[in-house]
Design a protein around this nucleic acid. Structure first.
Length: 844
RNA sequence: GCCCGCUUGAUGGAAUUGGUAGACAUACAGGACUUAAAAUCCUGAGGCCCGGAAGGGCCGUGCCGGUUCGAGUCCGGCAGCGGGCACCA
């Protein structure tokens, strides 16, 4: 007798489909629950990481549905992106064909997993019906001042002729071409995410159901710094230099000013000063990689200016252009206070500038500074600030600057506006027309969507849209003269910034249908990888605010609860030539070395890292699913490891999971065969050991699922199975209760087996529609307690006592134990500590 | 450099949040069934020591120290691993 999972999977998936039970409909009479897993990029095939992610979401969705919630659990495709274009270049397939074919395969694979997904809401972001709304919202945001265009520095790959994201620059080279990346200034479109910097930061504290780690990462990313912005006058020059500082209290310790190479003043001087312009070029060519920055020398170029101290115009400070000052942060200029900043200290030593102590511990006012003093202390040698603590001195310094009209308190953020222009084909076209006379003109609403030309060519580097013979040529909507379309497309993070809202009304003619969005949003449970902790999750929070501003949404925060599941990792395998191999393409030879299965070549084994298609360390579960079934595969993927933790994938667990599937199925079959009346038994009454086990399991497993402890829920289910087999007293009624509860408890993890057992015991209807079993607290109440007996904190034995037995009884029982008597050796304990129902500790 | 997190048997991990460390699973070993294998079932197992055995003792949650009747759990210090940020003024 063997469980035929192929049959069961086919039958139940058909039954669910025919009963149409996963299609979500608004229903004011039931509480809603929106479960969403981060949607996949259609890279080719489903791997273990996907299965883990979607199996978790499915557990939650099925559990909440059983708990009476009206569940929305949709699926879509994050379908624009670079890999499609790379595939077009290397395989000759059109990005669209490649993408839709991948979607077809992956959809089939996901559907085979028995996920409780509402497929009627499926969306693909590369479809014009999706991105037309994005284009429309972009233009709305433009009108609202949340979008602008400006020149900015980008990473430019001279071989592929495209902009690269920072993440795509590896050690200063393009990740694909290997070419040394240049910095280039290009006109780019930006989303004004900084307009919400404070709001995005403040609301983090209102997201208690987000992991602390993610909130912290976003906080650091936004990087709020409080300080002051103020002006230095220049000697014999009407211009001024604006600086930002978080330490205005140390202003009396200033000994120089430093400007970024891109600072307008420096730029201007460089026009007539060739050695300065050489210095500027050197600053720009400086790599942006961490290692280079770490080791780069602090270099300055003395400018022909002298700055005057804002609190004492007799004090004169030299002004430098310096390679460590960033135009993008603050004002692109700073004052250096060598005594209280490491970098300024290094610079002062190098250029022999004064190092003036202005903060000190009591009694160390005149101690020479041989290393920058960074602690809090008392202000010294600072005129009106003398004697103040650092925090007070900051306020006093700012007040004085304001009084003199030299500056004001200022908050600066690390967060930059979001540059969304990409010189790529496979993305959403930016709906703008550039007219020589009218400038950048929005595409009129009636002309949306701007769709991609299908006949683009991918046989040369650069942007296929720009190369297209006629796509970009059009006329200006304003003046009617010949004009050119914007040939850049959006960063693909734009699509994923609002897809969760689109799922509420996926076919609407507006971006979101307000009523439906108001019903379903926010997402109650969002699940995805921690690698999106900052970018995607921050962009989505920004987009939600921007959409609210346009009246599309009523919420600020898109995701009420966030769960970041760990990554599934695997070793990487690489041939000497650099070609990556799939795990299934390598084997260990007799000597224990890894070799390529086909050629026998030695393979270099790399460290275990997140499964990704580019490194080929992906494990396809097709084989496991065909051999052991979907239920066993889902079970194996969720067993053993806490969901938030990274796991090193090994196929080891899957056979055990399969054995367990069969064991449960056999258990049900055997019980039914031994007692056919089980199928019709009335609900049990009273108490017996089997009922206690059943109800304990119901209580525990519900609790574990609520808290995302799927590994523990699974352990409890194993325990339940072990005990059901051993349990002595069983009535027909309690057996029926045990089996039907078992069916429902395993269902979120193993939906097909759950249905199978449910039907086997004669339950009507679908288990997937059955309410979560309830437990009787009276049945699970413990009547006795096992109490540990310790002598001086060391375990000497255990006692079995009635629950809540009086303390003196427990003490007496403990003292009468042989092991305790031996330890006492006739003496008397100094002290006995009794913790009811837990422990008795005899202290000698 | 700064900020977070982690470290428990052969392995993945549990431990009611200060109260019996190692649940559950995987791998392993022994046994039963079998001509044999698979499957299934039973048994064993943190380490060391005493004992023929029953049993008993000591040590043990990265390392050192502390608080406590009692520490995997709390505190201080250190090490290792992982993650985030970084010429951020």
């Amino acid at each position: 007798m063997r469980y035929n999972f192929q049959e069961a999977e086919k039958n139940w998936q058909r039954a669910w489909r025919e009963a149409d039970i996963f299609t979500a409909r608004e229903d004011a009479t039931r509480p809603k629950y929106y479960v969403l897993e981060m949607f996949p990029y259609p890279s080719g095939r489903i791997h273990v990481g996907h299965v883990r992610n979607y199996a978790m979401g499915d557990v939650v969705a099925r559990y909440k549905r059983a708990r009476g919630f009206n569940v929305l659990h949709p699926m879509g495709w994050d379908a624009f992106g670079l890999p499609a274009e790379n595939a077009a270049m290397s395989l000759g397939a059109h990005p669209m064909t490649w993408t839709y074919e991948n979607i077809r395969v992956m959809r089939e694979q996901l559907q085979s997993l028995g996920l409780s997904i509402d497929w009627s809401r499926e969306i693909a972001t590369c479809h014009p019906d999706y991105y037309r709304h994005e284009q429309r919202m972009f233009l709305e945001f433009l009108r609202a001042g949340l979008v602008y265009r400006k020149e900015s520095w980008v990473n430019w790959d001279p071989v592929d002729q495209t902009v690269l994201a920072n993440e795509q620059v590896v050690e200063g080279r393009g990740w694909r071409s290997g070419a040394v990346v240049e910095r280039r200034k290009l006109s780019q479109w930006f989303f004004r995410i900084t307009a919400f910097a404070d709001d995005l930061l403040d609301h983090l504290s209102k997201l208690p159901e987000w992991p602390e780690k993610v909130r912290l990462m976003q906080e650091n990313w936004i990087g709020r710094s409080e300080g002051a912005q103020f002006r230095f006058a220049l000697k014999d020059d009407p211009r001024t230099v604006e600086v930002f500082s978080t330490r205005p209290d140390t202003l009396f310790g200033a000994s120089f000013l430093a400007l970024a190479a891109d600072h307008p003043l420096v730029q201007e001087l460089a026009r007539h000063d060739t050695s300065l312009s050489a210095f500027v070029a050197e600053c720009r060519s400086l790599g942006t990689s961490e290692v280079e920055l770490e080791t780069a020398e602090k270099k300055g170029y003395r400018l022909p200016f002298t700055a005057l101290h804002p609190f004492d115009s007799r004090r004169e400070l030299p002004v430098y252009a310096a390679n460590f000052v960033l135009m993008e942060y603050g004002t692109g200029a700073l004052f250096g206070c060598p005594a209280h900043d490491q970098r300024d200290f290094d610079f002062a030593v190098k250029y022999d500038l004064p190092i003036r102590r202005v903060v000190a511990r009591p009694g160390e006012e005149d101690t020479p500074v041989d290393a920058p003093f960074l602690e809090d202390g008392i202000l010294v040698h600072s005129g009106f600030l003398d004697g103040l603590a650092v925090a007070t001195a900051k306020k006093a310094a700012i007040a004085e600057l304001e009084k003199r009209g030299a500056g004001k308190a200022m908050i600066t953020y690390r967060l930059r506006d979001w540059g969304v222009s990409r010189q790529r084909y496979w993305g959403c076209p930016i709906p703008i027309i550039h007219c020589p006379d009218c400038g950048a003109v929005p595409v009129p609403d009636t002309d949306l969507p701007v769709t991609l030309p299908e006949d683009a060519r991918f046989d040369r580097p650069g942007n296929p849209l720009a190369h297209h013979p006629h796509w970009k040529h059009t006329t200006c909507p304003t003046c009617g003269k010949p004009a050119e379309r914007e040939t850049d497309t959006f960063d693909t993070f734009v699509e994923s910034s609002w897809y969760f809202a689109r799922f509420c009304s996926p076919r609407a003619s507006v971006p979101v249908e307000k009523d439906q969005a108001d019903y379903w949003l926010p997402v109650d449970q969002y699940i995805g990888g921690v690698e999106h902790a900052v970018l995607h999750l921050l962009y989505a929070r920004f987009f939600t605010r921007a959409m609210k501003g346009q009246g599309h949404l009523a919420i600020e925060e898109p995701f009420a609860r966030l769960f970041t599941q760990g990554m599934v990792c695997h070793e990487t395998y690489r041939l000497p030539g650099g070609e990556w191999l799939l795990p299934e393409q390598v084997v260990k030879n007799d000597a224990g070395e890894w070799i390529a299965r086909e050629t026998g070549q030695k393979v270099e084994v790399g460290r275990s890292e997140k499964m990704s298609k580019s490194r080929k360390n992906v494990v396809d579960l097709t084989y496991a699913i065909q051999t052991f079934g979907v239920d066993a595969t889902r079970w194996a993927v969720l067993s053993d490891s806490p969901p938030e933790r990274d796991v090193e994938w090994s196929g080891a667990g899957i056979e055990g999971a399969w054995r367990f599937v069969q064991r449960l199925w056999r258990l049900a079959q055997e019980w039914i065969a031994a007692d056919p009346a089980i199928a019709h038994a009335a609900p049990p009454e009273g108490t017996d050991p089997l009922r206690r086990l059943t109800h304990q399991a119901i209580a525990q497993i519900g609790e574990e699922i609520e808290h995302f402890r799927f590994n523990r829920a699974i352990a409890r289910l194993y325990e339940l199975a072990n005990r059901l087999e051993e349990c002595p007293v069983r009535t027909t009624a309690s057996r029926r209760e045990a089996l039907s509860s078992l069916a429902l408890l395993v269902l979120p993890f193993m939906p097909h087996l759950g249905e199978e057992i449910w039907r086997a015991i004669g339950q009507s209807g679908l288990a997937s529609l059955a309410p979560w079993p309830s437990y009787d607290p009276a049945l699970i109440a413990e009547t006795s307690a096992t109490i540990a007996v310790q002598v001086n904190g060391k375990l000497r034995g255990t006692l079995e006592l009635p629950k809540d037995a009086p303390q003196d009884e427990a003490e007496a029982a403990a003292l009468s134990l042989d092991s305790v008597q031996r330890a006492l050796a006739g003496g008397r304990p100094r002290k006995v500590i009794v913790v009811p129902n837990r422990i008795v500790n005899v202290v000698l």
